[in-house]
Design a protein around this nucleic acid. Structure first.
Lengths: 338, 338
DNA sequence: GCATGGGGTGTGCACGGGCACACTAACCGT
DNA sequence: ACGGTTAGTGTGCCCGTGCACACCCCATGC
């Protein structure tokens, strides 16, 4: 592999000049520059990453990460993605400043402000909601600080990129799965979280749309559980009492553990099909106990890792090509195949 | 983060001495060494990877990779894992020499010999079979060249590690999946490849064992197809003609494309459940055409990537901790969720 | 005629670690 | 007493890139 020195020698100039051409810095005679560029093309020169890494020891790219604080295995896993990628990129001077705060506009707002005070050069936020945050993010972006949103994408925020789940699509996948694992008439109970959160509404739309062409399926009841297991327990208990014909459940993410406990207690004999999201301790346990039939996963680790990688390449590379949106791949974990 | 220079200064010695302690090279006064070691512990010193990478530009770790030559998307994907990891590790002087040869002892033997001539310091082989190869590998290992086997593990070969699928386990998974997606009596046709290859026999054992406790299932017929699509087509056609009651198929890997074509042509109306292995073009196409119900994947990309990573850390690090076996995680790709 | 400024260029050092080589002091054998 | 060996240590350079600084030359202004 060619080095800057070799190129300099071939072009009859010094390393410094080649460096200036490579990083369009300082001023170089256009003729000389073109000559150097042609040699670079000819040799297929790629800067040596080890050299860059070593030279980057002096630099510092500080990236702010604002993350859900509530005990949540999904976001814990996203966090692992952030941490591992940060460790990898520390080689190149990348550093993250993580703020785990409540999912409230006020808390998030002050976290953003705190990041700014620390002088972050980029911000990653997951998840977020509310007009205040939208405006604040747009202010950041206008001031030249790129923002990547993970798992929350609001219209009107000119973020650098979105990384995360395609909720509607995963809802459809859940519907397809439900078709596959059932036969005969299916009487469905749906448990979702806060109806104001996209995650839940879109997962329901996708699911319902997918089943709409099949007369076997009927949604009998639906309720909110707000990520609270006791609430999930109560809700599902009530559903099972009021609608003994139920033979399938769909959880968009909330109250899974409590809901499954209710199913196990109130209908231990019945073959109730249950489809949920995410591979987290509560779903894994319920899969192993044969209560959850299948769960649909959307790579939380990848979401953290990918978003940090994108942000770093935006900050460090001259011309990073960054798409508008990056969607997590779906995978399915099934009973007895965990 | 501390550097070698800082440690040297604190210990009142030169960089060279610290270096000798860190890499137990040359000779160092035991007392001085202990002092340096204690400072290293105290500061929690970790060598800077960028520095190591840069210094490693001069080194060269050559690793031989012997891979199935036949057009095979699974091994193509393994190859991608090798290539990407090699690219990543080129930073540290890692280089691979790939030989894609036929799955015959003679071809593999000469590939191994060729690798030796090139002076490889480690060998990765996938897949392999036969006593000659086993003996040859053991000879290599005795001469100090570590060997990692991928997707073939023979008794008596003292390889450094095995990386790959757990075939029996994935067969069981296929059985569990078959239970889940069917209801009522199931009449099964099984299509496998060469009966001398572990992959096929173990996937069948696992599958059959898993179904053995459920009277719904009956294996009606079974045949070999040797990875040949025309053979697969003929075989499945014959099965469907002779046993019109068939309503499920299990392919251990061979003849999937041809077999599925036969199903599509001869039983277009029937709801036949089909379970196969690996996410390769032929399975993806047949999943999209709704012929394959689900396919079980075992991370071919990871297999390549992981095995090279292991080999490199064995060659480069003083004390790499390497397990005996690394099994690919199972995942399931399902109709409409690809 | 001299100071100012800026375009264009070269040079030296930094980054952290590996490693070859040089050097010293001590010890041994003849 | 002197050459040879060896344990123990220090020094200098290399790896490839980034970047600050110094330098030269020419144009412009007073």
């Amino acid at each position: 592999m060619a080095t800057i020195r070799e190129i300099a020698e071939l072009a009859g100039v010094s390393r410094g000049t080649v460096d200036r051409v490579l990083n369009n810095r300082g001023s170089v005679n256009e003729e000389t520059a073109e000559k150097i560029r042609s040699i670079i093309r000819q040799l297929g020169y790629k800067p040596n990453r080890a050299g860059i890494a070593l030279a980057a020891q002096k630099k510092k790219y500080l990236i702010g990460v604002i993350l859900f604080s509530r005990k949540n295995p999904f976001f814990d896993r996203v966090m692992e993605g952030f941490s591992d990628k940060a460790e990898e990129l520390s080689l190149y001077g990348c550093e993250i400043s993580v703020k785990r705060v409540a999912y409230h506009p006020q808390a998030q707002l002050s976290a953003i402000r705190a990041c700014l005070k620390e002088g972050v050069q980029g911000l990653i936020i997951t998840p977020y909601n509310g007009d205040e945050i939208r405006e604040e993010l747009n202010k950041l972006i206008r001031s030249g600080i790129p923002v990547i949103t993970v798992n929350s994408d609001a219209e009107g925020v000119r973020r650098l990129a979105y990384v995360g789940s395609d909720y509607y699509n995963s809802g459809e996948a859940a519907g397809a799965l439900m078709k596959l694992v059932t036969s005969g008439p299916v009487r469905l109970g749906i448990v979702n979280g806060d109806n104001n959160i996209l995650c839940h509404t879109q997962r329901i739309s996708g699911f319902v749309d997918k089943l709409s062409d099949d007369a076997r399926f009927k949604v009998v009841c639906q309720g909110e559980s707000f990520d609270d297991d006791n609430k999930g327990y109560e809700l599902v208990s009530r559903m099972l009492n009021e609608h003994p014909e139920l033979n399938a459940f769909y959880f968009t993410a909330a109250g899974v553990y409590g809901g499954c406990r209710a199913i196990a207690e109130l209908a231990p004999e019945k073959d109730i099909k249950v489809i949920t999201f995410d591979e987290v301790p509560s779903t894994v346990e319920m899969i192993q106990k044969n209560i959850i039939t299948a769960t649909i996963c959307q790579e939380p680790y990848w979401q953290g890792s990918k978003s940090l990688e994108l942000m770093f390449s935006c900050l460090s590379e001259k011309e990073a090509e960054i798409q508008d949106s990056y969607y997590a791949e779906l995978s399915v974990k099934i009973r007895e195949i965990v």
